[in-house]
Nucleic acid binder design. Structure first.
Length: 662
DNA sequence: GTAGGGTTAG
């Protein structure tokens, strides 16, 4: 009889399920199944990962031992079968079997994963009554981790503080809790306590505190902890590598994160993703895209984290074609239903001016949440679809969702971009009356722009003065409105107010210079320019780019350095001749330099966006494909299609979607 | 004879 024990052990080690099952039959026939051997068999099934067989036998057994209850519960929890684990736990209590430290160490995770905090709290109470809460580190860790997952950091801390013998896992559970709820300062404090208590951190601890350093932008501590990773020989652990990358990129030290990445012998999909995310967040979208391609070449499958990030890279570069290919990848991998991925897709299509496609992704969502609606409203806003944005705003309210700060920024932007002045004012007063939303500078700036464009300078000025800490951008917004309406005197008045605040602001100087230039006040222009030189102001050069066959071509005004400069120039002249015969009249008021008329006209011809479009037309040879031109600053009023730094301009039948409002 | 914590995204 005793040989059963060693036979079961042999099967378990070899993971031989068939032999285990024949043993099962044999023991059953011998009449000793519901004894010690039954428990051994259950244990064997669990170790062979056939939990259903274990459960079947378990349910047949009378007089189940606490150890077997515990094995059943913990094996269900570790396989993500939380509902069944909780069921087993209640059955156990119902049968009058008291849980012990092993039971508690497993069960709290089930409560947090099921999201049932009341039940979790009850179990906590029982653990206190039975005396396990502060005396057993495993139990305490379970409780601390559960409260942390529920975001109840005060409860987690309360339990933590009372535990007598704190170990590295308990400390880590609390640190991770703080980290995941944005309390990175607290996370670092606890880490310091831990080190002070001479408890050695491990890879779990270090991974988490590194991320906290990143979130705080605390490079000093980040580097110290990098030192600890090296000291404890944890450099080859994936989690350490991943969080090192995250830490450096969140501290804006992309070069260091590149260095870490290049030193890795192997990178997991999480590490690749962390690296790519860091590149995207640091404005290295093109590198991110090539790393993404490299990742795919290495047959590392991207997941929803990777894909949503890389889609954001495509959005920033407005690379529609690359984005569409990645959209195809998301469908192929079946992650296109993920809400992060879908939001990124809506953002991409919105940013690339394809509102219909953004909307079709939006319509495919099975569950609407505030972020997905915000993203769609923003897509409408960017493209000047004011009424559609307002409609969605109404739908949001009907769904009973609470609009947040981002919703209001997007909707105000939509009103602004579509010239819906009254609607914008109404929504603005709605936010004012809704005390749960705090008005931010962005809300004010948007309203100031809206009122300024509507020539309602008095109200706009009042808003600047009412808003907390008005900034240069707001005054500059108003100056821009003066420029639109040719209000030179008003601009000078605002300029004085601004200069008190930020005498060295380059944008202000350039704007006022341009206002003088449009009004032909060349003396003032010269004066402003020399003042600007004295202040050593640098102007951001205008730049346009076009994406053809996944290659980005960049142009600056008058810049003939492109290898195809000759063809571009020919195409440009051909085009201009054509449009002149169609009635185009170069509008030199957009040339803000004091030049002879002829030179002004030629300056106008060589604007960066025109070079880009000439190149694109030459390159695509009149093929019937959409051409998307991008520009970092505002598009010159003299011409054209494109997305500029603010919004997309759709040209159809010679009319721009912004109705020349911008 | 059974047990606890981590790294990537809007």
């Amino acid at each position: 009889m005793n040989c059963y024990t060693s036979l079961i052990a042999q099967c378990t080690n070899k993971k031989s399920l068939t032999t285990l099952k024949s043993l099962h039959t044999h023991i059953l026939k011998s009449g000793s199944l519901f004894s010690f051997f039954g428990h051994k068999l259950i244990d064997g099934y669990i170790k062979c990962s056939v939990i259903t067989e274990a459960r079947k036998l378990f349910d047949e057994m009378p007089n189940r031992h606490i150890v077997t209850w515990n094995s059943m519960i913990s094996s269900h929890v570790s396989r993500g079968k939380t509902k069944e684990a909780i069921e087993l736990y209640s059955n156990m209590l119902f049968e009058g079997v008291l849980p012990d430290a092993y039971t508690f160490s497993a069960i709290f995770k089930a409560f947090s994963e099921m999201g049932v905090s009341r039940e979790g709290q009850k179990a906590h109470g029982l653990a206190v009554v039975l005396g396990f809460e502060v005396s057993d580190g495993f139990v305490a860790t379970g409780i601390v981790d559960m409260y942390a997952k529920f975001g109840k950091m005060k409860d987690a801390r309360f339990v933590f503080d009372r535990v007598l013998d704190k170990d590295v896992v308990l400390f880590t559970a609390l640190i991770v809790g703080y980290n995941q709820h944005g309390l990175d300062g607290e996370a670092l404090e606890v880490f310091e306590d831990m080190v002070g208590s001479r408890i050695k951190p491990n890879e779990y601890t270090l991974a988490s505190v590194l991320v906290s350093c990143g979130n705080l932008g605390d490079l000093v501590n980040g580097k110290l902890i990098h030192g600890l990773v090296v000291k404890y020989g944890l450099e080859s652990v994936v989690a350490s590598q991943t969080s090192l990358l995250t830490m450096y990129s969140k501290c804006n030290m992309v070069e260091d994160s590149i260095k870490v990445f290049n030193s890795l012998a192997y990178a997991s999909h999480v590490t690749w993703t962390s690296f790519i995310v860091g590149l995207v967040q640091n404005g290295r979208e093109e590198v991110a895209l090539s790393m993404f391609r490299e990742m795919m070449r290495c047959s590392i499958s991207p997941n929803h984290f990777t894909l949503s990030s890389i889609l954001h890279a495509c959005s920033s570069l407005a690379m529609l074609e690359a984005g569409e290919q990645i959209h195809a990848v998301t469908v192929k991998l079946g992650v296109d239903g993920n809400k992060f991925v879908d939001a990124a897709l809506i953002h991409l299509y919105g940013k690339c001016g394809n509102v219909e496609k953004a909307r079709s992704v939006f319509d495919s969502l099975t569950e609407l949440d505030i972020v997905s609606i915000n993203t769609m409203i923003y897509a409408y806003a960017q493209n000047g679809f004011g009424h559609e944005a307002l409609e969605l705003f109404e739908r949001l309210k009907k769904l009973g969702l609470e609009p947040n700060v981002v919703t209001f920024i997007s909707i105000l932007l939509a009103c602004n971009n579509a010239g819906l002045v009254e609607e914008g004012c109404q929504i603005f007063s709605l936010i004012r009356n809704n005390h749960s939303i705090e008005l931010t500078r962005d809300h004010y700036t948007c309203m100031i722009d809206l009122l300024g464009r509507a020539k309602r300078f008095e109200e706009a000025t009042m808003l600047i003065e009412e808003g907390k800490n008005p900034d240069v951008i707001q005054w500059r917004t108003l100056l821009n409105a003066c420029k639109i309406h040719g209000e030179v005197e008003m601009a000078e008045k605002f300029m004085k107010k601004m200069l008190d605040q930020a005498p060295r602001d380059g944008g202000t100087h350039i704007l006022l210079t341009n206002i003088y230039a449009s009004a032909g006040k060349w003396d003032n222009v010269i004066e402003m320019k020399s003042a600007g030189r004295d202040l050593r102001l640098k102007k951001t050069p205008a730049m346009s780019w076009v994406d053809i066959d996944r290659e980005v071509h960049t142009f600056m005004a008058g810049d003939l350095s492109h290898p195809r400069a000759h063809e571009i120039s020919e195409m440009l002249h051909e085009l201009i001749e054509k449009v002149i015969t169609l009635g185009y009249n170069p509008d030199t008021k957009f040339v803000l330099q004091d030049l002879e008329e002829e030179k002004k006209i030629s300056a106008l011809y060589y604007h960066s966006e025109k070079l880009a479009i000439a190149f694109a037309l030459w390159k695509t040879c009149g093929k019937n494909t959409a051409i998307r031109i991008f520009k970092n600053l505002r598009v010159c009023g003299d011409y054209i299609i494109a997305r500029d730094a603010k919004r997309f301009h759709h040209f159809k039948g010679g009319i721009c979607s912004c109705k020349d409002y911008w």
